[in-house]
Computed example of a mutant assay.
Amino acid sequence: MSSTARTSHLQWIDDLPEDVVPINEFKNHKFDNLYYSPSTNEFYQAPKLKYRILSKDEKYLKCRTNKSSSSKISIKKLLDKLTNNSS
């Protein structure tokens, strides 16, 4: 009998970087646990106990809203919003 080991594509961390910025809403999406770190240029989400580094491609970030629905968000627009709010 052979078995195939399946490794997860998800990356988990125990603690967020110190410079994280919480993202509570974007357009019509609301979030309870979405963060961005400028120093790592990564987005993080905490569905349970640990934080997950979110999947992204060159243009979009995949995350979950506070209603647990999947969302695909423009990284450029989100970073523009974060930059404008921190000024």
Rank of each mutant, 00 (worst) to 15 (best):
residue 62 K to D: 07
residue 44 Y to K: 08
residue 38 P to I: 04
residue 19 D to Y: 04
residue 12 W to H: 12
residue 13 I to L: 02
residue 69 S to L: 15
residue 74 S to I: 05
residue 63 C to Q: 05
residue 48 K to H: 01
residue 78 L to W: 03
residue 74 S to E: 08
residue 54 L to D: 00
residue 60 Y to E: 13
residue 40 T to I: 05
residue 41 N to A: 10
residue 67 K to W: 04
residue 58 E to G: 15
residue 27 K to N: 13
residue 12 W to D: 07
residue 3 S to K: 13
residue 10 L to I: 15
residue 32 D to S: 11
residue 50 K to R: 07
residue 9 H to C: 04
residue 85 N to V: 09
residue 35 Y to A: 04
residue 84 N to Y: 14
residue 15 D to R: 10
residue 12 W to E: 13
residue 38 P to R: 09
residue 83 T to R: 15
residue 78 L to D: 06
residue 50 K to A: 01
residue 25 E to Y: 09
residue 1 M to C: 02
residue 60 Y to G: 02
residue 51 Y to S: 06
residue 51 Y to E: 01
residue 8 S to Q: 03
residue 29 H to P: 01
residue 46 A to K: 15
residue 73 I to Y: 01
residue 83 T to A: 15
residue 6 R to P: 00
residue 86 S to G: 06
residue 2 S to C: 08
residue 58 E to P: 03
residue 52 R to N: 07
residue 74 S to Y: 04
residue 17 P to A: 07
residue 36 Y to M: 05
residue 29 H to G: 05
residue 53 I to R: 07
residue 1 M to G: 09
residue 12 W to C: 10
residue 49 L to A: 10
residue 67 K to R: 15
residue 62 K to R: 14
residue 31 F to V: 11
residue 35 Y to E: 04
residue 80 D to F: 07
residue 84 N to E: 15
residue 41 N to R: 12
residue 86 S to K: 13
residue 86 S to D: 06
residue 11 Q to A: 06
residue 7 T to Q: 09
residue 50 K to E: 01
residue 77 K to V: 02
residue 7 T to E: 10
